[in-house]
């Protein structure tokens, strides 16, 4: 038996909107510690890892570990029927081939339930090693989204270079080139407006902008984004989800042949 009650149901709506175009089908794993997902895009270039810790739910019951295969497009269609202020409860019985989403309006005057068919998904679970990253940049998520959107009008790839001076986003295309430098800026009024660079070694890596732009759909989940870079690893683009957990996007770099 599984029963997870999320008072801030909009978080789950936002999570789905941020991953449904990247990943078609995924297994949601439920254990006593939380509700999680790990899935790659169909090209195996990007990976998304989601964690919603059990403590973040108002009610969390998961009698035994469960893996529920869901089509994210269909899940998104159902969650879109929930109001932004609704409380969302996810329910499933052991061995059932369906999951139920229940939506309660804040005043309890409207209660809906949607039952969705589960699917068998044969997906490989990857072990993501703990790593020390050479450069970690934290910046306003809206600023990062703006940069990715702006650069994708000019080129297909972005070179992200971190030095002590700042982080540089560069692209080149048929019409010309673009460079955007964000300097470390910790003297702002609000901490979420700061750009903070923690660098042990300078790093410069190239990534497909199409994926970066897709990741920025998670911008509504967090005011800040953390970009972790190392020359031998995929970049990690992380959005914290309130007090509950995170959504992390991993993207393999493009390498000069």
């Amino acid at each position: 038996m599984l029963e997870l009650r999320l008072v801030q149901g909009s978080l789950l709506k936002k999570v789905l909107e941020s991953i449904k175009d990247l990943v078609n089908d995924a297994n949601f794993d439920c254990s006593s510690s939380g509700f999680s997902l790990q899935a790659m895009d169909s090209s195996h270039v990007a990976l998304v890892a989601l964690l919603l810790r059990s403590e973040g739910f108002e009610h969390y019951r998961c009698d035994r570990n469960m893996s529920m295969g869901m089509n994210l497009g269909n899940m998104s269609k159902m969650l879109r029927c929930a109001g932004n202020d609704d409380i969302i409860t996810i329910k499933a019985d052991d061995g059932s081939d369906t999951v139920t989403f229940m939506f309660e309006s804040p005043t309890q005057d409207k209660i809906s339930d949607f039952e969705m068919k589960l699917m068998d998904i044969d997906s490989e679970h990857l072990g993501i090693p703990e790593a020390e990253y050479q450069s970690i940049v934290t910046m306003p998520s809206a600023e990062f989204a703006r940069i990715c959107k702006d650069l994708s009008g000019i080129g297909d790839t972005v070179v992200i270079s971190v030095t002590k001076e700042g982080v540089k986003f560069s692209t080149r295309g048929d019409i010309g080139t673009a460079n955007i430098v964000c300097r470390q800026n910790t003297t702002v009024d609000k901490p979420e407006e700061a750009t903070v660079i923690n660098m042990s070694e300078p790093v410069s890596l190239t990534f497909a902008l199409r994926y970066m732009n897709s990741f920025t759909k998670a911008t509504t989940l967090s005011n800040t984004v953390t970009i972790s870079l190392s020359s031998e690893l995929p970049v990690v683009v992380e959005y914290k989800i309130a007090e509950m957990g995170y959504i992390r996007f991993y993207l393999a770099p493009k390498i000069e042949e």
Binding site: L126, G127, I128, P234, A252, I255
Partner: peptide
């Protein structure tokens, strides 16, 4: 020309 790497080249399956 750049070669797009894959995630599985960095992370192993369990």
């Amino acid at each position: 020309q750049c070669l797009q790497k894959k995630i599985v080249e960095y992370f192993d399956g369990d």
